[in-house]
Computed example of a mutant assay.
Amino acid sequence: MKRFFIYVAFSFFCLVLQALGADDFVRFSNGFSILLFNKSVSSNSVKDTANFCLCPPLTQTQGGAFCFAGGGENLAKAFFLKPSSGNFYGRFAEGLKVRKGDISLESAVFSRRFLPLKKAYSEILKNFSLSAESFNPALVDVAAIKISQWFDWVSFGFQKDVFKPENVSENADFMLASSAVFNFDFVLPNGFADLKFTFKNGKVVDKKAMVFTDDVAVGEFKDFDAAVLNVKNTGFSIVFIKPKNFERAKEMLSKLDAESVENAFNVLKMLANSAEFRLIVPKFKLDSALMNLNTAMESIGAGAIFGKTEYPKFSDEKLNVGNVFQAAFFSMRPAASGGGLTTSSPAKTLVLDRPFAVAVCEAKTGRIIFLGAVENPKAN
């Protein structure tokens, strides 16, 4: 009966979307996120023990700045942007200037040499966290020095202090760097449980698991089961996706598209508070360290930024981006529980006892802010 309800609700919601028109902004952004994630995962890194995570909207927002500074339609398409709409780009930057305790999203554009910056360039950079507070001690590889003014960063010294010289293109006029921290250790589960996490190769490990029964919705879909956990007072929801077939989380993500993720998120939102649900997820963390995304950016058609390009809003000279760097971090390892477990009625339960994917989405829109593949939960 529950499956029938989910099917009817999903069908009705799809009809509503068709009538009202889906939010192209969310779908374009999610499409970029899934594509960049898949292109960033090299074939030789797809292993049972290989976790991976990324915060694509930060890179997309940076690309948007260069797109609108250069006015290039092809570059706009590569970043899934509408070149004729400045407001469309503005929405990408909206919501990304976040620095609240355990959650931090930061983007910056760096120059190896001082450039004759135009006023319009400074206006564009207002979409980035370029201030004395743009420093994240949890990611020393990205921000190794605390700054008092942005112009301290545009000197050659920044590259010397933060990045290894061999990792930076010699002729780079610009470098793009971003960092994302989602430390959800403050999210208290309703209780804890013991969980046996099984790898695709048959290996089983014992894991401490969190049990959530509040602010949770669980649903079944064609190729995967999913749950959404609303994180109060943050504006974000965490989505967990478990493949129906026993496959790696990265392989499963490569089969998803933006529309399927969007529809699943909206169905789960509708199911919230309609029944009792339970989510059992192992304690885990993801840490991408410092990544160079040049190859991934080229593979999705954004290679133009690495060639000498005219950016009239930046400078009268032809300039190029040398490197695109990012570091991302995610953690769910609370030390305490809140509330208590309820057993008044049978609950629809999703148990993440094998590789799964995790996404952080805007709670209102379902826009993907973070994507991760959990092939192996790390030590508690």
Rank of each mutant, 00 (worst) to 15 (best):
E247W: 01
F174G: 01
S11E: 07
V181I: 13
L20T: 11
K269L: 12
K364F: 11
N30D: 14
S345A: 09
F184R: 07
L17I: 03
F182N: 01
A172C: 13
L176M: 13
N201I: 07
E259I: 14
T343K: 09
L290R: 12
I238R: 02
F314K: 02
A227C: 09
F184Y: 14
A275P: 00
G70L: 00
P243L: 00
T49Q: 05
V109G: 00
E106Y: 10
F192I: 03
K255E: 10
F199C: 07
A258V: 01
S85L: 06
S337K: 14
Y311D: 01
I238T: 08
G303E: 13
Y121M: 14
A108F: 07
A132K: 12
G63I: 00
T342A: 09
I241H: 04
D223P: 00
C55L: 02
V109T: 12
S33K: 04
I145A: 08
E166F: 11
E259V: 15
F156N: 06
V374L: 14
F192K: 15
A379E: 15
D287Q: 09
V8S: 08
G90W: 02
N167K: 09
F212Q: 11
S85N: 11
F221Y: 12
L268N: 08
K207S: 10
S237I: 01
D316T: 09
M291L: 15
D102R: 10
S29T: 15
G191P: 13
A249S: 15
A217M: 11
L17C: 14
V154C: 08
V321R: 01
N376V: 01
V181M: 09
A258L: 06
K222I: 12
R27I: 13
E251A: 08
P334A: 10
D206T: 13
K126P: 01
S43Y: 03
I34W: 03
E276N: 14
E298G: 07
A327R: 08
L125A: 11
